[in-house]
Write a protein that binds this DNA or RNA. Structure first.
Lengths: 229, 229
DNA sequence: CGGATTCTTGAATTTTATCAAGGATTGTGG
DNA sequence: CCACAATCCTTGATAAAATTCAAGAATCCG
C-alpha cells in the first residue's frame, strides 16, 4: 500500500533529492499502491512525459532510465531544472497544471500514480499526507540548492554537478552521465563549450578521468570539492 | 488578535509570491490559530530574526518592513534567496531547522506563530493543513522563478527584479526599494557595480527614473519586459 | 559640519559566450 | 560488417559580458 511504501522515503541518507531509491533497493518492486498505480510504463528516449501547462494528472516515479525536467523560455533558451534518476519521484508541483515539461533522456520505465487518488487518500490517511509533504519538501530543497549552484563560477558548477551525480548513482568507480553536454549546460546555465572545456580542464588537473563523453571517473574529490565550494 | 490585525493589511494589491494574501482575502486572517500567535514583535533594522541551522521554532509574518533571507557560503559570498515584504510569510522550510538566515532590512513588525502549534493543529484541522501546503507550494514556485532569473543576463535580471518589486508593493507611481544595492546584487547573483550600471543604463534608455537610490519610477514597462524576457 | 557608508562611474582584467571548424561517436542502409 | 551521414563533443580564436580594482560623488548619521 502506498502508506507502507512511502513511509520509507526519508530516513537518513543524503537524499539524491526526490529519491526513495535506497530504501526501495534491491527489490525495488515499486509498491506505491498497486490499485492506484498502473504498471510501469516503458518510454523510449527523448519522448515527452508531460508538457508545460498540461493538467497534472499523475505523479511519476522513475524505475529505470533518466528524465529531464525543463522549460523553454520565450527566446528559445532552455533551462533544465532537474534530472531524475531511478527511484526519483517527479511531477509533483504546486499547481494543478505542470509548470515545466518532462522528457525521457534514455529509454525509461516509469510508474504513473493518479494524482487525484493520492490526494484523495491523503485526506484521511495522515501517513500519505505526510509523505506528500516530504516529497514537496525535498523538491524545495533541491531547487534551493540549484539556486546556490547558479551563482557560482563555471568550474564550481561543473565540479558540484559531478559530485552530485556521483552521490546519486550506485557507488561505482565510474559515474555514468545519461544526459548530453547540452543537457548539462542547460542545467548549469552554461554553454556546451564551457562545460566541455571545464571538464577537459578538470581532467588535465587529474581531478577526473573521462574514458568517454558519457563516463566520468572521479579521481580527486578534494580538487572537485575545492572547486565546488 | 492576529486575524484582525493582519486583515487591515492593504486589501487588494497583487501578492508577493510567498504570501497567502490571495487565498486569505478578504478576511486576510492567517487563520492558523489566533491564540497561538504572540502579538506582532518590533525588530529594528539589520537584526537577525533567525540564523542558519537554528531549530525552526516559529513561522513568521511580516506586518511592516522588509526582511532578507540569505545564506553565506564558505568563501564569504552571500546569496540572498528572498526578500519578504508586508503580508509575506517566511520561515517555513522543509526541515526542522533553518537552512537559511533571516535578517530585517528595515525596522519591522513581525508576527510569530509557534510552528509546533500550527503543525499540531494541522493534524486535525484540514483547513490549516491545506494552508500550510499552499505556503510551501508558493515558496517552491518562488524559488523556481529565482532559478529562471539566475540564468539570464544582468540586464534581464535587474529588469525582472524591478517588475517583481513593482508587483509586490502597493501600486504607486514610485517603487520603494527597501534593500541596498548589495542586497539586490546578492539576490541577483551580480556585483553591486553591475547592478548600479544596469540601473543607470535603464534610466538612460528612459525605461526608469531614479529620483534617488532607494526609489524607482517605472516609466516604460515595455522596455523592462523586453529585457526581462 | 565631518566622517562613514553607500552609490556611481571609469579603466583594466577575467570569465564566459559566440563563431567556426575539426574529430569522435553513433546509427543506418547497403 | 563496412561506409556514410548525422549528431555530438572538443578545441581554437574572437567578442561580449561581467568582475575587479580604483576613485570620486552622494547620502546618512551623529
Amino acid at each position: 500500500m502506498l502508506m507502507q511504501n512511502l513511509q520509507k522515503i526519508e530516513p537518513g541518507w543524503r537524499p539524491g533529492i526526490a529519491s526513495i531509491r535506497e530504501r526501495a533497493e534491491p527489490g525495488f518492486g515499486f509498491p506505491l499502491s498497486v490499485e492506484q498505480a498502473n504498471a510501469a510504463v516503458a518510454y523510449s528516449h527523448d519522448v515527452e512525459v508531460y508538457g508545460e501547462g498540461e493538467p497534472s494528472e499523475y505523479f511519476y516515479m522513475v524505475v529505470s532510465g533518466a528524465v529531464r525536467i525543463y522549460k523553454v523560455l520565450v527566446d528559445g533558451r532552455r533551462q533544465v531544472c532537474a534530472f531524475h534518476l531511478r527511484g526519483d519521484i517527479f511531477g509533483v508541483e504546486a499547481d494543478e497544471s505542470h509548470a515545466f515539461s518532462a522528457e525521457t533522456i534514455t529509454d525509461c520505465k516509469i510508474v504513473l500514480i493518479k494524482r487525484s487518488a493520492v490526494i484523495a487518500r491523503a485526506e484521511w490517511d495522515k501517513e500519505v499526507a505526510r509523505q506528500l509533504q516530504t516529497i514537496v519538501g525535498c523538491e524545495l530543497k533541491r531547487v534551493q540548492a540549484h539556486v546556490l549552484l547558479l551563482i557560482k563560477t563555471a568550474k564550481e558548477r561543473v565540479a558540484e554537478f559531478l559530485l552530485e551525480m556521483a552521490r546519486r548513482v550506485p557507488p561505482n568507480q565510474e559515474v555514468e552521465l545519461p544526459m548530453s553536454r547540452q543537457d548539462i549546460a542547460d542545467y548549469l546555465g552554461l554553454t556546451i563549450e564551457t562545460v566541455s572545456r571545464t571538464l577537459t580542464g578538470l581532467e588535465k588537473r587529474d581531478a577526473i578521468y573521462l574514458p568517454n563523453s558519457r563516463r566520468v571517473v572521479l579521481r580527486d574529490r578534494g580538487v572537485l570539492e575545492m572547486c565546488g565550494g
